[in-house]
C-alpha cells in the first residue's frame, strides 16, 4: 500500500508545471524515504531529478517500493481539477496498474477522486557522480528567470561566466550582444534577495537558452535558485521545495563545433 498526502494541492501543481515542459512521462519511484523521479528530456540534453522526502508529507506510507510510470499530461488534467487549497492524496495498492488521486476541500465538504492508469516506462537510471564545483551561485529565482527570458531574444545560447566579482550572462546574435552582470550582494535585509557566489576558480560555460527557460518553470517553488558549475561538466540548477525536498536540473554544456 502506498499513500502520500499533502496539505495543499498547489505544491503538486507547481511541481508538475516544473517538469511537464521537459518530460511527457516519468516514473515516480516511491519508497519509505519518499518519492524520487529521475528522467532525461526527449532529446537527452538535460536531466530532471526530483526528491520529495517522506517527512515533508502530511501523511506518508509506502509498505513496498513502488515505481509508478505516469503520463504527465494526464496528471496535469487531473491536477487542474483541484483547488489550490485542497488536500491532495495519492494512493496505490502494491503492484497496482492505477493510482488514485484524491482532493478534499479544506472544509471536507467536497471530495473528488481520479483514477489514472499507470504506464510501464522503460526508464534508464543514470548515476550522477559527486562533483567539486568551481563556482556555486545562489540568486533570486525570479531574477534568473528574467535573465533567461531576456537573453533568449538574442541567441539560442547563453554564456555564463563566473568570477569572484560576480556572474555574467551573455548572449550574442544577429541583433548584437547582450550582457547582464550580477555582483555579489553586500548586505541585504532579505536573504531571498541575495546573490552569493562561492568560487574555487573562475568558469565560463555555454548553455542552450531553451533548456534554461524550461528549468525556470520551477520558479514558483522557490525564492532562490542555485547554479553549480564546473568546466566540462553539466550545469546543475537547483530549486529547493520548502520542507519537502528539491528539484534539480542537469544541463549538458555546449562545446565549440
Amino acid at each position: 500500500m502506498f499513500e502520500a498526502r499533502l496539505g495543499q494541492a498547489t505544491i503538486l501543481k507547481k511541481i508538475l508545471d516544473a517538469i511537464k515542459d521537459l518530460l511527457n512521462e516519468a516514473t515516480f519511484d516511491c519508497s519509505d524515504s519518499g518519492i524520487q523521479l529521475q528522467a532525461m528530456d526527449n532529446s537527452h540534453v538535460s536531466l530532471v531529478s526530483l526528491t520529495l522526502r517522506s517527512d515533508g508529507f502530511d501523511k506518508f506510507r509506502c509498505d513496498r517500493n513502488l515505481s509508478m510510470g505516469m503520463n504527465l499530461g494526464s496528471m496535469a488534467k487531473i491536477l487542474k481539477c483541484a483547488n489550490n487549497e485542497d488536500n491532495v492524496t495519492m494512493k496505490a495498492q502494491d503492484n497496482a496498474d492505477t493510482v488514485t488521486i484524491m482532493f478534499e476541500s479544506a472544509n471536507q465538504e467536497k471530495v473528488s477522486d481520479y483514477e489514472m492508469k499507470l504506464m510501464n516506462l522503460d526508464q534508464e537510471h543514470l548515476g550522477i557522480p559527486e562533483t567539486d564545483f568551481s563556482c556555486v551561485v545562489r540568486m533570486p529565482a525570479m531574477e534568473f528567470a528574467r535573465i533567461c527570458r531576456d537573453l533568449a531574444q538574442f541567441s539560442e545560447s547563453v554564456v555564463i561566466c563566473c568570477t569572484k566579482e560576480g556572474v555574467k550572462f551573455s548572449a550574442s546574435g544577429d541583433v548584437g550582444t547582450a550582457n547582464i552582470k550580477l555582483a555579489q550582494t553586500g548586505s541585504v535585509d532579505k536573504e531571498e534577495e541575495a546573490v552569493i557566489i562561492e568560487m574555487q576558480e573562475p568558469v565560463t560555460l555555454t548553455f542552450a537558452c531553451r533548456y534554461l527557460n524550461a528549468f525556470t518553470k520551477a520558479t514558483p517553488l522557490s525564492t532562490q535558485v542555485q547554479l553549480s558549475m564546473c568546466a566540462d561538466v553539466p550545469l546543475v540548477v537547483e530549486y529547493a521545495i520548502k520542507d519537502l525536498g528539491h528539484i534539480r536540473y542537469y544541463l549538458a554544456p555546449k562545446i565549440e563545433d
Binding site: V45, L126, G127, P129, L251, P253, K254, E256
Partner: peptide, 12 residues
C-alpha cells in the same frame, strides 16, 4: 555543438 547529458553520466 550540444552534447548529450547521457555522455556525462554512467547508466546504472
Amino acid at each position: 555543438m550540444q552534447r548529450g547529458i547521457d555522455t556525462f553520466f554512467k547508466r546504472l
